[in-house]
């Protein structure tokens, strides 16, 4: 990697003072499980790395009667182990699927949400939109997007936690650019599909950072995550889905369903939500919701199989949330 200046601030204010407004000049170091690799390959070449590791205010989990505030520097392992996750099974399941103990112990909530795409053209230093989408369109795109891929961006959003958090209606707290500046936004709004190489896959300015994830009280909602993985290793899932549903009298009154690894952002499936609300969850309705989810899929030349996987993931996430057998390999 390129030589860089290393800053290790103690407070959120100091972090903001150290971050540059120029894109690429500074990078934020959380657990480092993604950033270090990107720096070693010189995909990012910051002049300064600002570590959040000693900012203690980012490491707490606080619950009150309406919400849980999870600091961005809480490790994935600590979040999964925290008793509050009893109320958010989708989170515990999503983290549990991350097979590498090292990734769970070292990776953080904020870092997991802000990791860069796994797109192999991006990782081969050809940019997020490699050749304005042509590299993906005409190349090997087996792991790329099946939704939201009609623009230049065709990579898959890599976060494994985001679908669960979005299903749970989480918000993120963003600090900066100036000390005292604070923005709260739904997590799904935080992500965006970049339209040029100057944009990143989220709305953060270079001198802003995610400080907290805020989970609303579940108020009786049940939730689940389901990943379709190729093997038990730490590799990313092929497709993932998370569902959070409010069921009263055996009928789904409200639902939030989000998919991962299928679009340049975590993908909320309105079609699946519309298909399940007003019905009980059973094998047929869950199947129909899965089918509805993929009705708007636009697979690329080599990833049609992901459409089938997305359908199954939605179905199984709903069944799992309802406490029913998902089927599949044990």
């Amino acid at each position: 990697m390129k030589a860089f200046e290393y800053a290790s601030p103690r407070t959120e204010r100091e972090v903001l003072e150290l971050l540059s407004a120029d894109r690429g000049h500074t990078e934020i170091l959380a657990g480092g499980t993604d950033l270090i690799g990107l720096m070693k390959k010189m995909i990012v070449k910051p002049d300064r790395v600002v570590s959040l590791n000693r900012v203690d205010s980012l490491k707490t989990i606080d619950a009150n009667s309406t919400a849980v505030h999870v600091g961005a520097m809480v490790t994935l392992e600590d979040l999964a182990d925290n008793p509050i996750c009893e109320f958010y099974p989708a989170i515990r399941q999503a983290i549990g699927e991350m097979a590498s103990q090292q990734l769970r112990a070292q990776g953080t909530v904020g870092g997991e949400l802000c990791q860069r795409p796994r797109c192999w053209f991006f990782r081969d230093k050809r940019g997020l939109l490699a050749e304005r989408g042509r590299a993906v369109e005409e190349g090997d795109n087996r792991f790329h997007a099946i939704f939201g891929n009609r623009g230049l961006a065709k990579f898959s959003a890599p976060s494994r936690l985001a679908p669960a958090l979005i299903a749970l209606d989480a918000r993120v707290r963003i600090l900066g650019p100036n000390p005292g500046d604070e923005t709260l936004m739904p997590l799904e709004v935080f992500y965006r599909t970049p339209k040029s190489e100057r944009e990143r896959e989220h709305t953060l300015e270079p001198n802003q950072f995610v400080s907290q994830v805020i989970l609303p009280h579940p108020e009786g909602r049940v939730s689940a995550s389901y990943e379709v993985r190729h093997g038990m290793g730490p590799e990313y899932p092929l497709v993932a889905a998370a569902a959070s549903v409010l069921v009263t009298g055996g009928i789904v009154r409200e639902a939030r369903i989000a998919l991962g690894q299928v679009a340049p952002t975590p993908w909320i499936s309105r079609e699946a939500i519309d298909a399940i609300v007003g019905l009980p969850i059973n094998y047929e309705t869950a199947e129909a919701a899965g089918q509805a989810a993929v009705s708007v899929a636009s697979p690329l030349s080599h990833n049609e199989y992901k459409v089938q996987l997305a359908k199954v993931a939605v179905k199984r996430a709903l069944l799992k949330a309802a406490g029913l057998e998902t089927g599949g390999l044990s």
Binding site: R118, W120, D124, D140, G231, M232, G233, P234
Partner: peptide
């Protein structure tokens, strides 16, 4: 395309 360990899939004990 998959010239890094992160992308080159190998089985784990569970597989």
């Amino acid at each position: 395309l998959n010239s890094e360990i992160a992308d080159y899939r190998l089985p784990r004990l569970g597989d």
